[in-house]
């Protein structure tokens, strides 16, 4: 699932970060690398940027930047949402 589409409270493992250049490096140096667990902890009042928990710290990024990140959503045991 694309990170932009994730709901607050949803968790998952980063599957891919499809961007290079300075933005790609910036994401990596802040810890956004495949295999890392992230949880969406909230969004700004205007719905952008998004706030993540990663490695026990809080990170922010814009929706347009979240677009490059694909996440494997952790299936909650009590969740019935089987879409995507």
């Amino acid at each position: 699932m694309n990170l932009r589409k994730m709901q607050t409270g949803q968790s998952g493992i980063i599957a891919s970060v499809k961007i290079g250049g300075s933005l790609g490096l910036r994401m990596r140096e802040m810890g956004l690398v495949p295999g890392t667990e992230i949880t969406v902890t909230g969004r700004a009042p205007l719905y952008d940027p998004v706030k993540l928990r990663i490695h026990g710290q809080t990170l922010t990024l814009r929706n347009s930047e979240a677009d490059y990140i694909e996440v494997d959503i952790k299936v909650e045991t009590d969740s019935v949402e089987g879409k995507d």
Binding site: S22, L23, R26, M27, M30, L32, P49, K51, Q57, T58, L59, T60, L61, R62, E65
Partner: peptide
């Protein structure tokens, strides 16, 4: 510029 930044606790 990216807004990939840390919110300090």
């Amino acid at each position: 510029t990216p807004f990939v930044m840390e919110l300090p606790p």
